[in-house]
Design a protein around this nucleic acid. Structure first.
Length: 225
DNA sequence: ATGACGATTTACT
DNA sequence: GTAAATCGTCATA
């Protein structure tokens, strides 16, 4: 005899656990960067409002040897401490006196590999995202959906990611995590040099450590065509 | 204590 | 295309 519980279980859509776990993050920055494309970044606001977007553009930062990384030369300071935490930690930093940037930490404890999330295709909570963007000190006159999360500073503003989110463990947090896509992204993964790192010198600024979904209109910067 | 500098965004020519 | 905005962080002294 089927019990009520059995019936409920059968009726519910088989929904596999999609949240990325520790092992997803515990790898080198390039592997993690590629794996993150097509994943969903999920943010739950303090009032319970869910926001979400598909990751479409990322950059890998390779740690101590990478002259463009905050951890270059093994630098370890109060600001970048989260880069040395366990894989799956969020590293958020403030820059240019007005913007935050969000990274997913990879590597291992004391190994500062990280992936900068540069752009999302907004999926859920667009109007709340727009309200966040409009509340900014220097908000543009109007904000099309395409510009909600196109750029590292913009997506942090749209999702309400700031200092308080730095150091969060995205494997266990109930306010910030990443989910695997139901199926791998259809678009091919394109690559290019990273953006805004010219000061790191030619050797590192020219390496193609930026990855993005080709043919995606939500990507910031040059799409190579 | 001080100064140079951003893993950016926006507005304007 | 160029330039301004704006302030925490870090290296130097």
């Amino acid at each position: 005899m089927p019990t009520r519980e059995h019936a409920a279980a059968a009726a519910a859509p088989a929904r596999p656990a999609r949240r990325c776990g520790r092992s997803f993050f515990a790898t080198d920055a390039v592997t993690l960067a590629r794996a993150l494309l097509g994943c969903t970044l999920v943010r739950t606001l303090e009032d319970g409002t869910p926001l979400a977007g598909t990751i479409v553009e990322v950059e890998a930062y390779l740690g101590a040897p990478d002259r463009a990384s905050h951890a270059r030369g093994g630098r370890r300071t109060p600001r970048n401490e989260a880069m040395y935490a366990q894989p799956g930690t969020a590293y958020v930093y403030f820059t240019y006196g007005m913007h935050y940037c969000f990274n997913a930490v990879g590597g291992a404890v004391d190994v500062p590999e990280a992936v900068l999330i540069r752009a999302l295709e907004p999926v859920k909570g667009l109007e709340r995202m727009r309200a966040h963007r409009r509340a900014g000190a220097k908000a543009p006159a109007s904000i099309p959906d395409r510009d909600l999360c196109r750029g590292p500073g913009r997506l942090c503003q749209a999702l309400g990611i700031a200092r308080a989110q730095c150091g969060l463990d995205m494997v266990t947090s109930d306010s910030l995590w990443i989910e695997r896509p139901p199926r791998p992204p259809r678009a091919a993964i394109a690559r290019s040099p990273r953006i805004g790192v010219a000061a790191a010198g030619a050797r590192w600024s020219k390496r193609r450590l930026r990855f993005f979904l080709g043919d995606c209109r939500y990507v910031s910067g040059p799409t190579g065509r």
